[in-house]
Design a protein around this nucleic acid. Sequence first.
DNA 1: GCATCAACCTAATGTTTGTCAGGTTGCCCT
DNA 2: AGGGCAACCTGACAAACATTAGGTTGATGC
Lengths: 203, 203
Amino acid sequence: MNNPKVSSRKTIILREAARLFREKGYSGTNLRELAKSSGIQGGSIYHHFSSKQEILYQIMEYTMTILISKIGELIGSEPEPFEQLRKAIRFHIEYHTSNVNETYVTDAELRSLTPDNYKKIVVLRNKYEHIYIQIIKDGIRAEKMKIDDVKLVSKALLQMLTGVSYWFDPNGSLRINEIANKYIKLFFWGIAGKDNQNHEEAS
Amino acid sequence: MNNPKVSSRKTIILREAARLFREKGYSGTNLRELAKSSGIQGGSIYHHFSSKQEILYQIMEYTMTILISKIGELIGSEPEPFEQLRKAIRFHIEYHTSNVNETYVTDAELRSLTPDNYKKIVVLRNKYEHIYIQIIKDGIRAEKMKIDDVKLVSKALLQMLTGVSYWFDPNGSLRINEIANKYIKLFFWGIAGKDNQNHEEAS
DNA sequence: GCATCAACCTAATGTTTGTCAGGTTGCCCT
DNA sequence: AGGGCAACCTGACAAACATTAGGTTGATGC
């Protein structure tokens, strides 16, 4: 989470906090248990964070910042909207499944933020969502996509993709890459559309 | 929630509990506040419920039971899979948006259930999900739908639909009925599929 | 007119909670 | 060798919490 040492105590606390917050909720988690599973005593958490709230905020702020920056790079190096969307979908699923705890908390614990922190995170959320909206708008302009309500469609997409991390099982039979392909196909052609899988005719 | 008087105290408590559980989480809600917003004193809740946990369980049990029974009626009176799915989608969105608090809690607070209660609710959840799976399977057999992973698709669908209740605004410009139509269109034809809206050619 | 009982109140109990003040340890730099 | 400081511990605090025991009230049925 930080840079210097890959797994400093602070990093450990943030990782364990994300896990506990997902498993028991923010209010349902107490700092003594968090400390214990981070290998320190209860009070010692306050050497690294000023409050419980700050731990939650840092998890969310970090997660959203990474999401935004990574997807920025991704679509920056790809001009074609259709292909941008494919890459974005793949990325969203990959990141959310390999960082379930953090992304789940970022998604579900908005209500536990103080008003100030809430505002800041919502700004980042909207920023991330707007990247998807923009891709789809570009796709329409390039006459590749046919949509009359971009906002609704992008919300539907993100909701659908995030859901993967709720049921994904690393030991299951499906690889992330296969799942991404299935979702791309579903989102592009629906359940009653094309029966062939030739969705590789980009630009 | 109960039958006799439409709005007994017990009903009020359950309604307020669902609201508070959604706004602040199960652990984040305290019984004094719940009592207050239900118009009684803290301890009086225990005249109607044996514990905080029981309140959560009753909300979930009631919600899932209604969902299952209503969708059962719905598809029982409609033989054609395509039309069944349309009705199911419409119903899911409608019920979830007009009972946001209850459905949100049922969806998000599984982790707060005791092991025994957890098992019971999960059974009901699976039952509900399997109705969708069955519809889609029937649709494939009738050669109306083209899907290679029914489970994945039904999970994607439900996730997408439930998401509507997270952003839906009764005072916004979109009516529930319009939203349902857009989701049906999206799920059936995708964003790159048919450009016309003639998805009314069911059997 | 009295017994009954559901609905509710009041006050208390024991536990858990976030937070903090003050102290200890061991490493780094000079 | 000794100051400085980050990392951590210990013990305590007040507040908040779910839950309970025992009491009050008012309507209903006989």
